[in-house]
Design a protein around this nucleic acid. Structure first.
Lengths: 214, 214
DNA sequence: CGACCAATTGAATTGATTCAAGGTCCGTGG
DNA sequence: CCACGGACCTTGAATCAATTCAATTGGTCG
């Protein structure tokens, strides 16, 4: 496993106004590169700075004592993670693919809390949907919902990239990885999607996907 | 269904420092009483003030278009709810039993955001555990975890009060209400708990409960 | 090419749900 | 005071969705 290499400071591509002003007030460090499956911080680690994803994907997950894992969220370029209460991280963060991460030192001024609150509330809304997904959806619905989310985020037409592997998807959706595979097959058989490759899906029928969603 | 009746302003019993200072800065209204199963705000309603539970229990839930319901949290005395992003509530809030609720007008000063952030982050940690519960636990584990939570909150020795009915528990844990009933029976048969009445449980063996938990 | 890891697929199993039938509790009205 | 109705809870039996276990295929890297 490689050590994260420091990359020179580059102009960030982040668009979100909340995040931009967060950066403006937090003396952002340079971007460090985390190769696939490297830990950014671990469960139980001392709480540190915030992190901003510049490129790549990060998974934030919580593992129970007996090894069961629940992925709370996948963070993509522009997402901020690492904000937690208390002095220990309750979750861990790992790069999924190669990811470029910038650390943001928390400032102590008033506007900063406002900005953080705004971000926290946004995450909140996402998490609430995730609760509904985990608690009340079937495997097919979970998967459809996940794919639509990705398609929406990536905004690359009919093509969805899956930077994470089946196991990660499973732990995100509360399924087994075999089930993830099977559901994809079902969608394929119904001509809703086409598996261009393991990590690349073409959506043939968004309507059907939305119907399968709930 | 009764209209909420206004009760005279009474000294709040809230302990939490964050909440107390929140109150100090937000001209709290008087306590209104919401009889069992009355709506405090509905899904899609315009976002309004924050709410503080003075007594009783409130459920915050999200219902999907086809009627499936996921209860996000039960709020008890001292809990604040109603904080959401955007101008529409994504969730609804209803009293479970009779509940006394105080509205808190959000102030625009700096400290306020700080306090809200602190509360939001706390909820965050809870929700993360709930994600793990919904996504990765068996029915028995969910129930054990729920009971331990209640016992911990209520701090009334071996006795746990269940202000909510089976259906609510089910929608909180992502189960069917029949399963809730059955799991309680399993615990009873194992002499882990005793059902003093429908809404009153005596814990006979905390260790076994903790073991069943995960 | 072989080794290794990920993904797929099949078969058997199981945990939880659904459907259906009582049972309990409580308030209301005769 | 007791009978009745309704809401909630419990329990059983059948079903089903998803998991587990196992075998195979596919892709990647040295």
């Amino acid at each position: 496993m490689l050590t994260p290499a420091m990359l020179p400071i580059a102009a960030s591509t982040v668009q979100d106004p909340d995040v931009r002003s967060l950066m403006a007030e937090s003396q952002p460090g340079s971007v460090s590169f985390y190769p696939a499956n490297t830990t950014i911080y671990g469960q139980g680690d001392i709480t540190g700075p915030l992190f901003l994803v510049e490129f790549g994907t990060v998974r934030v997950c919580h593992t129970s004592s007996d090894g069961r894992r629940q992925i709370m969220s996948f963070c993509r370029a522009g997402d901020v993670f690492g904000l937690e209460i208390g002095d220990e991280h309750a979750a861990c963060a790992e790069s999924v693919d190669g990811a470029g991460i910038r650390a943001l030192r928390a400032a102590d001024n008033a506007g900063f809390a406002q900005r953080l609150l705004s971000l926290a509330l946004r995450r909140f809304a996402q998490i609430q949907n995730h609760l509904l997904l985990l608690g009340r959806m079937s495997a097919n619905e979970k998967m459809a919902s996940f794919l639509l989310d990705l398609a929406d985020q990536q905004d690359s037409g009919d093509i969805i990239n899956l930077p994470m592997q089946r196991n990660d998807i499973a732990d995100y959706l509360g399924l087994s990885f075999e089930t993830v595979s099977r559901v994809l097959r079902v969608f394929k058989d119904k001509s809703i999607i086409r598996l261009q490759s393991v990590d690349r899906i073409e959506v043939l029928d968004f309507t059907a996907l939305a119907d399968a969603c709930c």
